[in-house]
């Protein structure tokens, strides 16, 4: 037996109908390796509503409750209440939603679930746009990105607004645990999932989920681009455990242009725009280091 760095047991079957190189497939695979088979998922409209396959196909070895787009927070509250009412123990209730379903249309229900301290894990797999509907901008699309609804053109109408900071929003709810994870760092991912599982209350996991068609890159680069997101400090890996922030992977400090240049969605950016992204990333990274050192 070769020793693997993440649990060898699989909770997914091959034959998912996700695109080749889909980051969201990896997010689910690592998540379930961390959570195990006593997991019940609530999944709204998103890529993952389609990826298990047409009825009667399910690519997961755990149950799924499909819900309406904005309903994930309510779905996990309902599941948990029913299991509590029925005395069903040893079950991890998980909301698993995309970025649009989380930071846009599902934010209210998520906020409600967090405020009610629903005993569940909420995972946002963030491919930074409405990908299932064909790459329309969401509140999680980063500044400067091309999407089909920020198509550039003569007016250079790319995404003009920065990405919504969901981690800060969730932290403001005073939840017990929040963490960022990357498909390039499965060991860190699985460890955080396991930790989230061991806690009570609403735990939040933000997973960057590269999307080859949406990010305009070739599918073999999914893991590489996720690695660059961490190394450039654009998507730092950290956790906030009971209010204390800890960076779990420092990254090399690679220039952000290395991350941007392999994605077609940023190909129109000029040097000064890249510099401005770099500046923002550096500032945010410095703030994160400061927060870590201050223990907040």
């Amino acid at each position: 037996m070769t020793k693997t760095t993440i649990p060898e047991e699989e909770f997914t079957y091959p034959g998912s109908t996700g695109c080749p190189g889909c980051g969201a497939n990896l997010v689910m695979r690592y998540l379930l390796k961390g959570l195990g088979d006593r997991t019940v998922l609530s999944i709204p409209a998103c890529c993952w509503a389609v990826m298990p396959g047409y009825w009667p196909s399910n690519c997961l070895k755990v149950p799924i409750l499909y819900t309406a787009f904005e309903a994930t927070g309510a779905g996990i509250s309902g599941l948990r209440a029913a299991y509590d009412a029925k005395g069903v123990k040893d079950v991890t209730v998980v909301g698993f939603a995309g970025d649009g379903g989380t930071v846009d249309i599902g934010l209210q229900a998520l906020s409600g679930a967090a405020e009610r301290q629903t005993d569940a894990i909420y995972v946002m797999y963030d491919n930074e746009a409405y990908m299932n509907t064909g790459i329309q901008r969401s509140g999680a699309t980063p500044w400067g990105a091309w999407t089909t609804t920020t198509p550039g053109g003569a007016t250079k109408n790319y995404k003009h607004e920065p990405k919504k900071d969901i981690m800060a929003i969730m932290q403001a709810h005073g939840i017990p645990y929040a963490a960022t994870v990357s498909v390039a760092h499965p060991e860190d991912f699985v460890k955080k999932a396991q930790k989230a599982k061991s806690l009570k209350g609403l735990r939040f996991i933000h997973a960057l989920s590269p999307c080859p068609p949406g990010w305009r890159m070739s599918p073999q680069l999914t893991v590489e681009v996720a690695r660059l997101a961490v190394d450039t400090h654009l998507f730092p890996l950290y956790e906030i455990d009971d209010g204390r922030l800890r960076i779990t992977r420092k990254g090399k400090g690679t220039p952000v242009k290395e991350y941007l240049k392999i994605q077609g969605r940023f190909s129109h950016l000029d040097e000064s725009q890249v510099d401005s992204i770099q500046k923002t990333v550096d500032e945010r990274w410095a703030k994160l280091l400061k927060r870590e050192s201050e223990g907040a």
């Binding site: 019940v40 927070g73 509250s77 309902g78 599941l79 409600g112 009610r116």
Partner: peptide
């Protein structure tokens, strides 16, 4: 469940009912 909207009230009932309550 003191939900934050009627949409969530029904969505939570749907989830709970699917779980057999």
């Amino acid at each position: 469940i003191p939900v934050e909207s009627e949409h969530s009230a029904m969505a939570a009932c749907i989830a709970a009912e699917t779980a057999g309550a």
